[in-house]
C-alpha cells in the first residue's frame, strides 16, 4: 500500500499568470498523481483570492535547478552601463543642442499607441 501511495504523491511545480500580459510567475509546489489532477488542484490551492489568466504545471523532475554552488555563477560586476540606457544619458544634452528631444524609453514605448495595458 505504502509504495502505491508513494506513486500517488508526485511533485508538481505550479506557475500562473495574473493577466494576459503578465509574465508567468512561480507559485508553489503540490503533490498529485498526474498532470491532469495537478492542474485541477492548482488554482484553488494557491490562487484562491487572486485573479488568474493562465496556469502551467510542471513535473518537478523535469526542472533542472541550480545547486547552491551554481548560484554563485549568477553574480556579476556592476560595470556594464554600456548595455544600459543609463550609459547613454549624455545624449539628452547633445540633442538639446540640435533642438531635438531625446528618444528615451518612455518615448519609444509610447509609439505603439495604446500605452500600458
Amino acid at each position: 500500500m505504502s509504495n502505491q501511495s508513494h506513486d500517488f504523491y508526485q511533485e508538481f511545480e505550479v506557475f500562473s499568470r495574473k493577466s494576459d500580459t503578465a509574465p508567468m510567475q512561480y507559485q508553489f509546489s503540490l503533490l498529485a498523481p498526474n498532470h491532469e489532477i495537478a492542474l485541477v488542484m492548482a488554482q484553488e490551492n494557491f490562487m484562491r483570492r487572486e485573479s488568474v489568466a493562465d496556469i502551467w504545471v510542471v513535473k518537478r523532475s523535469d526542472i533542472r535547478k541550480m545547486t547552491q554552488e551554481e548560484r554563485e555563477t549568477l553574480k556579476r560586476l556592476d560595470n556594464k552601463d554600456y548595455r544600459m540606457t543609463k550609459g547613454y544619458g549624455y545624449l539628452k544634452k547633445k540633442w538639446r543642442k540640435f533642438e531635438q528631444k531625446m528618444l528615451d524609453e518612455k518615448e519609444i514605448l509610447s509609439w505603439g499607441g495604446g500605452g500600458k495595458q
Binding site: 500517488f8 503540490l30 503533490l31 498529485a32 489532477i37 485541477v40 488542484m41 484553488e44 490551492n45 484562491r48
Partner: peptide, 11 residues
C-alpha cells in the same frame, strides 16, 4: 482522499 483535493473541493 488528498490534502490538495480537500482545498479544491472546498472552493
Amino acid at each position: 482522499p488528498h490534502i490538495e483535493e480537500d482545498v479544491a473541493f472546498s472552493s
